[in-house]
């Protein structure tokens, strides 16, 4: 469904979504606060780990920052954005927008843009805290780090789109999003080293978006090329979930 929205209209819609997100203060606590908590915990509890273990980098750089980034992307992509979209459909906002010249599509795009801005803000905040508070350095391969973040965003936002498409209510969207987030997080190392999990579970966790993000970003900090499976995993997730979301999304 194509639209012809004037540039001022796009700016106004993105501004409107940004206000909605900013006024939903409860929704900002987890994506911006939890990563900082993870960073501080990893920073404080791994101070004695010798640098050889992580190829000359600290655990905070190789595990803490990637975890923090995965939490931000996962939480925003699969919980926050779909909860807004499900609410907009449920309340009739999308239906109302359907009778404007712009149609309802731009509001989805605007919500995605604002979600991605939240991801960037959350990751920058975590990086600044890590650099100033714990003496962390930038990634050895900035390109890989950036690519990993974009890939993670594509995968989690597509999953979020699928959640928004299938969830009948706002609460269902939040519940489904949290299950996806915590599930992929648990097998992806959010609650401790995932390599200690039983073999198949650890393997699955490594290619699912959360664990894959942690792996790719960890590799970027160490300056080694990432494995193929954790790159393919999020890419396939992005395509499959994105197609599913486009196929099943309902406007009312």
């Amino acid at each position: 469904m194509s639209t012809r929205l004037p540039p001022a209209g796009w700016a106004a819609l993105v501004g409107a979504e940004a206000r909605m997100v900013a006024r939903d203060t409860a929704g900002l606590v987890v994506p911006l606060g939890l990563p900082l908590l993870i960073l501080v915990m990893v920073g404080l509890t791994t101070a004695g780990v010798p640098p050889e273990v992580f190829g000359g980098r600290t655990p905070l750089e190789v595990v803490g920052l990637p975890l923090a980034a995965a939490v931000v992307v996962g939480m925003v992509g699969v919980v926050n954005v779909p909860s807004f979209l499900a609410h907009y459909r449920r309340a009739g906002v999308l239906r109302r927008l359907g009778v404007t010249p712009a149609g309802p599509v731009p509001v989805l795009v605007a919500q995605g843009v604002v979600g991605f801005a939240q991801v960037v803000a959350g990751c920058l905040l975590a990086l600044l805290v890590a650099m100033w508070g714990f003496g962390a350095g930038p990634p050895s391969s900035p390109g890989v780090a950036l690519g990993g973040l974009l890939l993670a965003s594509a995968a989690f936002f597509a999953l979020g789109g699928l959640v928004a498409a299938l969830a009948p209510t706002t609460n269902a969207a939040i519940a489904a999003g949290l299950v996806l987030f915590l599930g992929t997080g648990a097998v992806g190392g959010m609650f401790g080293d995932a390599s200690a999990l039983p073999g198949p579970l650890a393997e699955a966790g490594r290619v699912l978006p959360f664990g894959a993000t942690v792996h790719v970003l960890g590799a970027a900090w160490r300056g080694v090329p990432p494995d193929l499976a954790p790159v393919l995993g999020p890419a396939v997730t992005a395509v499959v979930a994105g197609l599913g979301a486009a196929r099943w999304f309902r406007w009312e």
Partner: peptide
Amino acid sequence: HDMLTVAELVRVHRSM
């Protein structure tokens, strides 16, 4: 959009 004000809503819709 339930968290936007009257003026904000009218301006957003006007801009479309």
